[in-house]
Simulated scan of single mutants.
Amino acid sequence: MTLRLVLIRHAKSDWDNPLETDHQRKLNARGRRSAPLIGRWLAQKGYLPQEALVSDATRTRETFALLCADWPTLPVRFEPALYHACPDVMLRALRTAKAQTVLMIGHNPGIASFAAQLLQRACAHPAFDRYPTCATLVAEFDAATWADVNYATGTALDFVVPRELE
């Protein structure tokens, strides 16, 4: 069976409110424009997820809401462990997923490392190593369940950054 992961770094966030903690930061105007662009791109390409694992930070929650505003409703788990998670924590969370196509939204630097470690071959996109805000990787895995997925087993199907869709 083929499993598909849509791995997204949260959209651009706002640093203007000194009273907010990092966890509370909201999206800025650019982030609020970028997330729906990625959502439409995923729908047009046929990459709609059936389950979502999302960091519980404000900016990841907002990214998720804007991303999937026009999609059919999907189950979502807001995971505190995904807030600034390292690749091993992300992999543990992913291994609990049940759907064939899963969306995960997290933070850098962990998400860039996780993406790179999941793939058999590095993605050729010039922005892949930086994994800028709202960057989106779509990868496939030849595995029966997410519990069977390991590092260096994924194949990149697509990678996009919002600026390419504007």
Rank of each mutant, 00 (worst) to 15 (best):
L19K: 08
G154F: 04
L37C: 06
A69Q: 15
R40Y: 03
F78D: 02
R121G: 02
R59L: 05
A135M: 14
H125T: 12
F64T: 03
A127E: 14
A97W: 01
A143L: 06
R163I: 10
L48D: 06
L48I: 10
L19G: 10
A144C: 09
R40L: 10
E79G: 00
A152S: 14
R61P: 05
A144V: 13
E20D: 09
L103W: 02
T96D: 09
L157R: 13
T63S: 12
S34D: 15
L3M: 09
L91A: 11
P18Q: 05
Y47G: 04
T155R: 15
W15I: 00
T136E: 06
P126T: 09
L19D: 12
F159D: 02
V138K: 00
L165F: 04
D148V: 02
P72L: 08
L165S: 01
L48T: 13
S34Y: 06
N28V: 08
A65P: 04
R61Y: 03
F114A: 13
V149F: 06
L48W: 00
A35Q: 00
A69I: 05
A112M: 02
E79Y: 04
T155D: 08
L119E: 07
R61Q: 11
L48Y: 00
A127D: 13
A144E: 14
R77Q: 15
L7H: 02
A127C: 13
P109Y: 10
D88M: 08
D56C: 07
D70G: 13
K26L: 03
P87E: 06
A65Q: 14
T96P: 13
S55M: 04
N28G: 11
M104A: 12
E79R: 12
T96H: 10
R40H: 14
A115E: 11
L94W: 06
D16K: 04
A81S: 15
V160T: 14
R77F: 07
D56P: 08
F78V: 01
P87K: 12
E164N: 08
A52L: 04
S113Y: 05
L103D: 08
Q117H: 11
L94E: 09
H125D: 13
L119F: 11
N150C: 13
L74C: 10
C68P: 00
R25L: 02
T63L: 00
T136R: 00
P80I: 03
V161R: 05
L7C: 11
Y47M: 07
S113E: 15
R77I: 07
D158P: 08
